[in-house]
Amino acid sequence: MEGEGAFKPRVVGFLCNWCCYGGADLCGVSRFQYPPYIRVIRVMCSGRVDPAFVLKAFANGVDGVFIGGCHINDCHYNTEGNYDAYGMASIVKKLLEQIGLDQNRLRLEWVSAGEGIRFAEVMNDFSAKLKKMGPIGKSEGVPDDVLKRRLEAAMQMVPYIKLVERERLHSNLRTEEAYEKFYASEECDRLFKELITDKLEISQMIALLREKPRTPVSLPSCWGCRVGYCQACQHFGAAGVVPVR
């Protein structure tokens, strides 16, 4: 079918027990064909998927992460956890962009337990897209060590991101349209930039400084050229540290 050396993406999937896992099972029983790249982890609800799991998966070097839940308003639980999965995935996608990864490496889909064929279709499409994107990091031009550091810095921020999500970065209205609108809005982008972007950079700086002492001049070079000297100084200032040249 394809050459030996063709790129085969590694995919981790978090499927909710009630809908998508059932859909995947039905897909298998019905013998619908899809590429064998996904490694499935069953969770009880898509709302259980912690942002840290997604970041950890990417840090482990997988090329794509899939989250499958029940259709909106069909959640098995009256907590409607799939809305929370939507919110979480939207924020992590923005985070991935900040890190320098293609945000489409994370994919969230609603698949019911009866939609075996849909699971196969989604898998075919996601696999094809990932193949086009190529291996993680290399395709985006982010070196492995930089990517690893950035993802680790992002993981360190997960508790903070959860608090921000709860306080500010969520839609008050529980409808699919409202969620779509909120996470696509400029307001959301502004909040994200204000609340998360800078903190992410500081988190990366701290990660670098943990390795060994560095000066503000040497920092940006090992950063992956995202922040200049001035910004580094600014962050030091915000963190209450006076940099020494």
Binding site: V12, I41, V43, M44, C45, G47, R48, V49, D50, P51, A52, F53, K56, A57, N60, H76, Y77, T79, G81, D84, M88, V158, P159, Y160, K162, L163, R166
Partner: peptide
């Protein structure tokens, strides 16, 4: 359902048989 696990900033609350540790092990 374990939604609270994903909301807890410190990982203090854990759904038995779906704890952070168990899922991360599976991931690794």
């Amino acid at each position: 359902d374990g939604l609270c696990n994903a909301k807890c900033p410190t990982g203090a609350i854990q759904l038995k048989h779906f704890t952070d540790k168990e899922i991360v092990r599976q991931l690794d």
